[in-house]
Write a protein that binds this DNA or RNA. Sequence first.
RNA 1: GGCGGCAUAGCCAAGCGGUAAGGCACGGGUCUGCAACACCCUUACCACCGGUUCGAUUCCGGUUGCCGCCUCCA
Length: 466
Amino acid sequence: MSIQLYNTLTRKKEKFIPIEEGKVKMYVCGPTVYNYIHIGNARPVIAFDTVRRYLEYRGYEVNYVSNFTDVDDKIIKAANELNEEVGELTNRFIEAYFEDVGALGCEKATAHPRVTEHIGDIVQFIQLLIEKGYAYESNGDVYFHTREFDGYGKLSHQSIDELKVGARIEENAIKSDPLDFALWKAAKEGEISWDSPWGKGRPGWHIECSVMARELLGDTIDIHAGGQDLTFPHHENEIAQSEAATGKTFANYWMHNGYINIDNEKMSKSLGNFILVHDIRKQIDPQVLRFFMLSVHYRHPVNFAQDLVENAANGLERIRTAYHNVQHRLSMSADLAEDPQSWLDRIDEQITSFENAMDDDFNTANAIAAIFELAKQANVYLLEKNTDRQVLERFLEAFDQLMGVLGLPFESVDELVDEEVDALIQERLDARKNRDFARADEIRDQLKAKGIVLEDTAQGTRWKRG
RNA sequence: GGCGGCAUAGCCAAGCGGUAAGGCACGGGUCUGCAACACCCUUACCACCGGUUCGAUUCCGGUUGCCGCCUCCA
């Protein structure tokens, strides 16, 4: 089966066909770095990191680009307030971004371009738009003439006239049409700026993505992704700029993730009800956060609430326990069992349903269901008196593979080795053998107080942090 | 005003023409010295009203209720 993905441009699920066979050019809009990212910012990063991992799992070579907006009004404002250089501030938050997103299991992109590294390219791109008659200079600013671009509105499915009726667009004497948007903004006194043919200034917001995507991926890319709210105007404007400049399709597939709500209310920096990843990951296992977000389809809203996250934590724990129990069994016995084949087949069935789910517009909710089913099968298998080494290994391999695609690797065994704990467990085993249950329970309670939970199995006692 | 989304068990969440995946929680069993882990069993007339169809949770129309975009925002 082939991968189907929902394309905002056509509002349909489409078969994914890359421009170049076996390769994917993907661009994901990244954050404006003037603060730590909130969990809403983290959603697209997690969602599209998962998309990327699955594409790679499917054998594609993915060239994944995600930018940093490291100069804009909010950054300048924040830098002024903190009495810090713009560059210092953005470096600080870019570093924090990598820490936060890394904790959430997201791989680094192939490239993380920054706006300030591409000013020259941006200036050239704007010049090209002016030459082609799509942009004009006014008072040191440069604007894109929206009405000159025929396809304007095709992504958000808005007609240009309706947009005007919508009417919350600011009137501005400098623009010749209220729908026009800035490509270049003239610098105010004392602001960070770069020289340009139109005087000192800096790039507008939308132009950076058009330019950096083109520089790093070419005129036409396969997948362009970002949060739902970027559809209009950001992505619409990117299309206008890029296609006006190159005369080619900018991106074949547009993917947009849904929001995170808090108590069913939209979370955003402007509303102020946001949860910073920097803070929350100290309280909640970041893998749980990732698992929680992936338990809902990426296009649907996720409601963030304490009890729902705990719910997800319990579910993840079930999968981890199954995995570690298989590992434990493998380390404790080397039984041989009859007919491993039917079990190997069952494992393959779950891998297939996982793949089917992911092929269907990256349906991680269903993919997770397949992993739960795998866990169930593993638990049932562990009930057998005799197990086959090959089957146990295959279970682990499948768990590793599937959870790996979701960016949720299992803790390695090494981290679970502790001599002191082992000694206590041995002492408890002896106590139980001598029917000294008081001592046995005492040890169990003692370990529990240290956050270590014991599980007695037919093959011995295993422990975990809980 | 324009564009769009959602409404499925106590909670979360898939499915989207052939009488409902999965998880969490609850209850009943089994396992256990007791527990933990686990296993088995139990739990839904898919917001409402019409229509199309042999058959609709799934398609069409309408109603109600939430939500989003059209403005910086993931």
